[in-house]
Write a protein that binds this DNA or RNA. Structure first.
Lengths: 201, 201
DNA sequence: TTCTGACTTTTTTAGTTATAAAGTCAAAAT
DNA sequence: ATTTTGACTTTATAACTAAAAAAGTCAGAA
């Protein structure tokens, strides 16, 4: 009927998709399954979303929003650049584990937009500029020295992602074992420690 | 006839394979082509090598040997840890460009031995222990501080590989554009700089 | 001991079909 | 007017298949 209900239905669809996706993975979930969960027809889903991909992207964006909200909260409450970056690693780790079945990497790979895709580029930029802000703030407080915080931030993010990828090995996989998650986290913590020291006076 | 000639023929085969492999890539090269280049029969190749894979591995090992020889020469002549690591980056870069058609990554991927394969593990260890030596030497000279140089070396190598992988993106590709090679090199140089500073007193 | 032509076996590729899932739409329900 | 749906079409995926190409073997020649 009016806008309120329309948005509500959209939300219910996103919720149902998120549940299925995180439990069984996005690619193994059919539109029919989502429709059945909601006791509605598949055609209804297509009234709210142009195609499955759009729904998938919306779900990813929702998860991304929650991720950035936590990230920015953490950055705000951290006293030092060191604390902020360490907090970020923990949050990234938790989200990666929680949402690995959303197949973010798979989407990026299939669409060949790992470094070019618009939404992804924006997310990467948002994360990078958050790190840049943390470094800049560290410089202002006299904690750090950095000529070009933005450039350093790009390097930092790239190195963190790299440590994640260097384990995944054969291909850009979304699935990782508990152990592997932990190894990556430890590497990231260690590198962040050295990195921050390398930016000190 | 006697050993001298046998080894000589083996070398000629390796040479011919190396030429074909680096020019057209290993997987696009047939044993018949190598035999034709040498004006001998394909069966002869199988007298010297049990299968194509063994030949491929031998060619990779030969390239690897040259790589480590240069690497160790560079480490020996460098005055500081900083110089040594920067020198290493340059050498790795040159070899990666020169031998990318040898499809090292492809072999590792297909054989699922990126972190487990024996020969590869040894090569990785050799590179890591070289970095560990460089760091240890830096500590002795009072240039650096590191509690556990071996652990730091693993992290360093992992981060360097990670920067390489984070660009390759979709999958573990051997082929990279000139531009991409240069981007990775710059990142590696920048990270090595911060890393070394992070290990200073 | 080294080499080869003629051979067999294995792998890759391209094409085929069957099936499942994605996506559409005219008409019904609210 | 907006929302929903059953019945439909289209598209993508997976499982076979046949043909071609490359890998790999071997008895016997050099």
């Amino acid at each position: 009927m009016h806008t309120e209900n329309r948005d509500e239905m959209r939300e219910r669809i996103i919720e149902a998709a998120l549940k299925r996706f995180t439990h069984y993975s996005a690619s193994k979930t059919t539109m029919n399954e989502i429709a059945d969960d909601l006791h509605c027809s598949k055609a209804s889903l297509y009234y709210y979303f142009p195609d499955k991909n759009a729904l998938h992207i919306t779900v990813l964006e929702k998860a991304g929003e929650a991720y950035f909200r936590e990230l920015e909260k953490e950055a705000a409450r951290s006293a030092t650049a060191y604390d902020a970056l360490m907090g970020m690693i923990g949050i990234r780790h938790a989200f990666a584990k929680r949402f690995c079945r959303l197949e973010l990497f798979k989407v990026l790979r299939d669409k060949q937009l790992l470094n070019t895709g618009e939404a992804f580029r924006l997310a990467r930029e948002r994360e990078t500029s958050l790190v840049a802000d943390i470094i800049r703030s560290g410089v202002e407080k006299g904690e750090l020295v950095a000529e070009d915080p933005a450039k350093v931030a790009v390097l930092y993010i790239q190195a963190m992602i790299g440590l994640r990828l260097s384990l995944s090995g054969n291909e850009l996989n979304d699935d990782m074992s508990e152990e592997e998650f932990e190894t990556v986290r430890q590497w990231q913590v260690q590198l962040a420690g050295i990195f921050i020291k390398g930016l000190k006076k």
